[in-house]
Structure formats: C-alpha cells, structure tokens
Design a protein around this nucleic acid. Sequence first.
DNA 1: TTGTAGGCGTTATCAA
DNA 2: TTGATAACGCCTACAA
Lengths: 334, 334
Amino acid sequence: MRQGPTITTIAERAGVSIASVSRVLNGLPTSEATVRAVRVAAEELGYVPNSVARSLKSSRTNQVAFAMADIGNPTYVAMVRAMQPVLKDAGFRLILHSTDADIDDELDVLRRLGERYADGLIISPIRLTERHLEAFAEARAPVVVIGSVPDGTPVDNVRADSRTGLRLALDHLYALGRRRIGFVNGPLDTVPGAARARAYADALTELGLPHDPALIEIGDFYRADGAAATRRLLARTRPDALMCANDLIALGALDVLRAEGLRVPEDVAVVGTDDTDLAPVAWPTLTSVALGSAERGRRAAELMLDRLADGDAEPRVVTVEPRLVVRGSTKGTS
Amino acid sequence: MRQGPTITTIAERAGVSIASVSRVLNGLPTSEATVRAVRVAAEELGYVPNSVARSLKSSRTNQVAFAMADIGNPTYVAMVRAMQPVLKDAGFRLILHSTDADIDDELDVLRRLGERYADGLIISPIRLTERHLEAFAEARAPVVVIGSVPDGTPVDNVRADSRTGLRLALDHLYALGRRRIGFVNGPLDTVPGAARARAYADALTELGLPHDPALIEIGDFYRADGAAATRRLLARTRPDALMCANDLIALGALDVLRAEGLRVPEDVAVVGTDDTDLAPVAWPTLTSVALGSAERGRRAAELMLDRLADGDAEPRVVTVEPRLVVRGSTKGTS
DNA sequence: TTGTAGGCGTTATCAA
DNA sequence: TTGATAACGCCTACAA
C-alpha cells in the first residue's frame, strides 16, 4: 500500500518529460523510443492513472449516482441490477444513495450534485413535492427521474404505466368472473399510490363496475401494512378479488386470507404489483402486474448516458410497457 | 445547470483573497467582517465546494466501494443495506461494483483501486484464488474481505461461521428425530460451498451420524439448480431432511418435494441458509440458518472506517454469530 | 517529436 | 488577520 507512482515518477525513470509520459499514455503521436521507455517504466512501477486528477482536469467523474428510498426494496434492486451493466459498459461507476424516503435527504442529494462528485443523478422519489421540482430545475448536473414528473420539468423521465397495468389486471379478474374487486393501496401522497388509485378507478369505470368505497383500503407499502389493511377491508365487506398496489402488500393479503380460512384463488383472487422476485416464491404463487422495474432502470441509465453525450437535447419521456404475469393466486394451482 | 461558482468567484464578489474564502469555509479563525462578506457572497452565488478538487488536495475521496457478484442476490442486498447507513453517517458515499462472480472482473476492481477513486474497498469474492491473495497484498488502498481469508492475509476480514450455523441446523433436525439428513450444496470451489461442505461433514460426525455420499448433491446456488440437484438426490435415496446451502436452493428443493408428492416437513424437513427475505415468504415458510448477512455488511463497513482512521493497526478478523430461524419447513404449519 | 508552463479548484504554508 | 503562492496529478497549448 505504498504511495503510487505518478507521471512525474515515470518521467524520471524513463528520462523524459511528464508531457511525453502523458502523450504516450493517451496514445498521442510519439517516437517509438519514447513510447517504449515510458511503457517499460510505467509497467515496472505499476502505474495507474489517478482518476481524481483526471476528473479535476476534465470535469468528468465517470460516476453516476442513483438515489432511491431503500435498497432493500426489490423494485429498486431490480433497477440497480439493470442499470449496473449499462453504466459499467460505458465506463461509469455507480454510486448508491439510500434516502429512506426522506424528502430532505433527497433534496440534499440533489443539492450536493453541485459538489460534482458525479456526472449525473438518477432519482426515484417516492413522493414528489414542489421543492423537488425546484431542485430539479436548479440541479448542477443532469437528472433522470424514474416516476412521472409534470410536463415541462427539465429532466429526462422514465415512467411506468400503472393505468394500463391495472387495466390488464382488472380485465383478467373480470374475465375470471370477479365483480367485487377490492383494492389495497399505499399512501395516496406517494407517486405510485396516487397513480394506482387513479388507475383503479379508471379501470372500474371502463369495465362498467360500480365504485364502492368499501372495497378500497389504504396502508403502507409493506407486508404487515398490507395485512392490516386487508383485515380492515374484510371486516366490512367481502370481495371476490383483491388488487394490491405492490407485491409486499399482496403477501400481507395472502397471510390474512389464509388466516381467515378463505381460499386463494377460489374465494378471493389476489394480484400484486411490480412482479418482484417474491411473486414466484409466494404460496400460492402470485399473479402480478410487472411494471418493468428492470427495464425502467435500464432505460434510465441509457437516458443518462445520452444526456451526458448531448447535454442540449430536449428532455425525453420514456414510458415502459406493463405486462401481467399470471400465476396461481388468480388461476389454478401452482 | 450553469457553471458553478468557485472560491475565486466568491473571493472577487466578497473583495477578499481566495485564501480568506477557504479559511471562512473551513471555519479557521477569521475576522468577523471577512466571515460575513464571504458567507453572503457564497450564499448569493449558491456556492458548493468541488469535491474533486478537494480530493486531489487531500487525497481522500470519501468514497468506499463494495464489490460483490450480483446485486440481485438477497444476501448481498442485505449487506449493502446494512453498510449504507454506517458509511453515510461517516460522510462516505458508497460505490457498487457487480462482478458477476468473474474473477478477472474482481481482480480488475482491485487493480483499479490504484486510480484512487475510492478510499477503500469491501469485497465479497465467491471464489478465492491465489491471484486474489496477491492482489490483496498489492492493493493501493485498504481492503476488507467478507468471507474467510487465510491467516496472515493483510486485510481486515469478516467471517460467517458456517460450521456453527450448520451445526445448529443439524442439531435441530436431529432433535426432531431426523437421521437421514441430505445436503444440497453449491460448487465446492466457492468460498461458501467449501465451508459448508466441511461444516456438514463435521456436524454429522459430532452427531454420530454415518457419512453417506448418496445423501450429498451439488448444484449451483440458484433455485433451478437446487431443484435439479434435489431431483438427482431423490432419484437414488430417500432422506428425511434436506439441508440446503442457501435459500434459493431450498426453494428449488421445496418445488421438487411438492412435485413428488412429499410433504414438508412431515416426510422431509427442509432447512435453507442465509435467512433471506425469501424464507418467510416461501410455503411452507422456510427454516433457515441466518449467517448474519446484514451484520457482516455492517461490521465490514465499520472495519473499513476504523482502518481509514488508523491505517497501521493490525489486520482484524471478525466472526459473526449464526442463528437458526425455525419456521414451517421443519416444524408444524405456518 | 519534445519540453516548459499554465491551469483545473482546493488547501495550506509562509510572509507581510 | 490577511494575501500571495505553491502544491495535489493530470492534460494541453505553445515553443523549441
């Protein structure tokens, strides 16, 4: 762990100037003899260029940051996993920020972009406030947002299509003869919670089903909250299907249905959202609306790379197609 | 996204020298008037210090890297999740490297430490070769390894205790009356595979159970491999319990047992390893040996911080205590 | 083709 | 208390 050599060290060793060393290292036209001398010296000393110095000169860090609420959430894991190879292949390192869905933390991350430790930021805020929009506008580096932002926001944007996604799920349930389709949602002041509430209502309308407030319950996006919300819902009405705003909520719903002696899917069909790795593990395996977490992550990384290549291009909006993955919780046994 | 102000900009605005600006910003003794002038100017211009320049000067990046095989693996997710707050609180950013268990990729990460983009590296290699050990010795920054390294390796080391962990599991199975305890392992040339193979053999010996090669099967660490391996094992013998080298393998085993019409745990009890988030989701819920992924991540981060604070301290070895989490796949219904 | 020198934004030393 | 100035390691005119 000795102090690493610099171009100065190499220059001395090779008996040339630091400029020549730099030229050789960057493949600029140099005499054969110099090239050899420098290469040998660099090799012998185990030279590795200092990326910090390089960054200071080039004002490029080759780092991209990703900020999300919680790396434990399988949705974000899928995003990170998909981003990684895209960024890596382009020579970028990935910095991870976990914000615990704390708004001040998120804003802090945006503000700190001014420190120029990263060339750009991909962020997936669970709530979207006025202050976020201001921060996006003032950001000192390109920002890509995963989750819908209002038109005109000066950032690239990757969106899920909850509307179509829930429509797919409700069509499926309708086709199976279900008419009392409950909805266990997350908090309405979150980006996904709000989107999914609208999507559920729209889908009901389009299917010509009545809007029954008794069929809607709200909790947080975790298993225990999903279970509690489902318990509250079952206490006052009897649905023949439950649409859940994410897979964790759906797992909680399965827990409660089982405890209540209700069969899934015979008595109550259950659909999750996000199609996480948990869905095929659950019992019964969980039908889930895949909103394309991995693809959203991949597309966000690609948008970032494009943006870094051309900072003046118009902000872009990319919408990822949802897909319904049918499993045992709505159909048959498995 | 205009060009950000530097201390030079502020110095001009405030009518002082850059030295004074730096002093104010770093809280060094300065006259009241200068402090005020600088603060006002910095505020008005929205100044944010450039971390790259700071790093060049201080040769500190305030970044720590973590290299693992695959961020999709729940074990690593647990580690990352636990590291994050420790590093963050200490003012460090976390860089993620996903190596796909590719040895050259891992060695590359180690070599690139010479670029000084991070102050240290936490690495969890799935295989450990001679070249790894050499690379550890030559690393240009502190390295913390998660997974046992030979004594004398000049790195801090966080270990799981597979031996005790498997012993806990086999004791549990033994106490339940199981005597033909099969073992579905991962590849023997991996760090966990090798450790768990030894641990299983030792536990059998200590329990006075015979070593029956027919009871051992090897696949890769994924669900499908676990299923295939279990199928091979069942084709030649009939265990009354299956110890699995990780939770994914155990899920595969559950799949096959169910398909074969064998009841879990009545006919065959199943135990996983790592106690990932999947264990409580599986059906039946999966008894699993918790090797403390989260704690290993946390401890690794702490060792790194200590090392960065005192580079000359002796290399440390930390072993994390295992714990058996009993669920439905070995006992009762749940 | 090569070397000298200036600068990227900070911090820190040294006189004044 | 303050300002001029020299690093940190690299890249790149510009001159030779």
